[in-house]
Design a binder for these strands. Structure first.
Lengths: 122, 122
DNA sequence: TGCTTTACCTACAAAGAAGTATGTAAAATG
DNA sequence: CATTTTACATACTTCTTTGTAGGTAAAGCA
């Protein structure tokens, strides 16, 4: 059986990657990162607005994925020092660039829906 | 807290999906499906050839992901009734279509490598 | 007849991602 | 001064994915 572990292609933040695709998935993979990025495509949103924009997300996932997206430089977190302290999240240039990729995944999904004759309400 | 579970957007093979992107990830997501698809882009390969083409994959993952890709119609499995029984895997038209998407993910990864100044050997 | 090759296949364990439930601080509001 | 709202934060559990470590069947070869 295959137990060989060869040389990694590259490292990022202590993790080993064998292909650029694996790296991409660290930035936009998982259930919630892409929905968050898509929600921000028209401009900055507050925490509560994101929660409304993404119907099924829990606080835990929203907050942890926002932190993850911040750490990788996909979104910016801006605190406005107003009377009710206000926080807004927006896409960085890198985040905006990822929209093309996410759109490609979205279009393939729509193609699948047609091809596989999956019923979509509305 | 958010315990609301609303209406699903659509169903496929008993699973619930809220966006076309989620559906796409069922077809090409996970660690190994995209490397397998990329390995087949130049033409059909046998099981053993795929194993050589994808250095770090185990038998378990190669075989289970080949089955998954077959089930979703991304690849075809052809058995040649020759003296040493021979099996070849190749992309279906749907599998070929996914190459565009995978390429988009690949290019974004390369962009990240440049942007984040990640060292890549060779 | 025993050994090798090809193409699988499975039980079990470990690791990682996501969900459940609950808590908190600071300011506005009644 | 008690209550509500906003924006988080964490402990714990469950679910899913991946890895480890084996095994098998069929045919050809020595």
């Amino acid at each position: 059986m295959n137990t060989f572990r060869g040389m990694a292609d590259f490292k990022y933040q202590g993790r080993i990657y064998y292909t650029p695709i694996e790296l991409t998935m660290t930035f936009i993979g998982g259930t919630w990162k892409m929905p968050i990025i898509l929600s921000l495509r028209k401009g900055a949103l507050r925490y509560g607005e994101l929660k409304k924009a993404i119907p099924h997300i829990t606080d835990k996932m929203l907050f942890s994925q926002l932190r993850a997206l911040e750490e990788t430089g996909m979104i910016d977190r801006k605190i406005y020092k107003e009377k009710p302290p206000r926080v807004a999240y927006k896409l960085t240039p890198l985040g905006k660039r990822s929209l093309k990729v996410i759109d490609s995944l979205h279009r393939f999904g729509k193609h699948l829906i047609k091809q596989k004759s999956i019923a979509v309400p509305k």
